[in-house]
Amino acid sequence: MADEPGGSAAVTLAGVAIAFPLAGGAIYQAVQGIDLAVRPGEFVAIVGPTGCGKSTLLNATAGLLQPSAGRVSIFGAPLSGLNGRSGYLFQADALMPWKTALDNVAVALEPQGVRRGEALERATQWLTRVGLKTFLGSYPHMLSGGQRKRVALAQVLIRNPEILLMDEPFGPLDAQTRQIMGNLLLNLWAQDRKAVLFVTHDLEEAIALSDRVVVMSAGPAATIIGDFRVGLDRPRDAAEIRLDPEFHRIHKEIWSSLRAEVQKAYAFGEAG
């Protein structure tokens, strides 16, 4: 898969390394030697200990960040500038606080040249789909964390991107809300199966949602140390799937490779 010559993969990372300059002229090597391919319609989760550069990798795929070595290709074409074929769901609040939920979603269609009347109509439909029909006129600060994520999800999906990049999108939410959001995401995704690259530090969430779990080593110079297929049936319920014996088997298998890295990350964090 990773060695496939780019043709059919939605996202191909080949030999990608990313480094940041530090104060004092030193260089911090965040990730290196990353080979990864995401096929169209595939839901891939990246897990790894805190600070392993998962989000950095995602930003490189989005074009927000230039890799220091290697190549990022989107549907076979080398990426230059921002990745216009992808939608990005951020971990932090990314909604425009001065716009209502409706305007936040509708404005996402403006770059595509959709007329305002139509944009408002489609935004209303999308907010209804994510269960926020009665919150159209609410400003972000009036919404709960989970509701804001729903608006952000609608904002990203209304543009109908071919690739979805998600950076610990449900990280700040409580456990129950996370499961509800996970199910909402699975339902929406099942309708047209976009390629998804989902970064999380929560292994259970990764298994519950994805087709494939990619494990990264602890940073610095983090790389991919494991690639596991999740053979659980779809459609799934993000909460109930966790009781499935197969889920436990996969969890155990992946955790055995992840555990050492998590401990390494802690040791590094305490030493530094």
Binding site: A62, L64, L82, N83, G84, S86, G87, Y88, F90, A92, D93, A94, L95, M96, P97, V107, A108, E110, P111, Q112, A152, Q155, R159
Partner: peptide, 18 residues
């Protein structure tokens, strides 16, 4: 301006004027 809000707006495809 919040860098996240800005990055998000750019990922939504907004040009400089937008």
């Amino acid at each position: 301006v919040s860098p996240t809000v800005l990055a998000n707006a750019r990922m939504l495809g907004m040009n400089e004027r937008q």
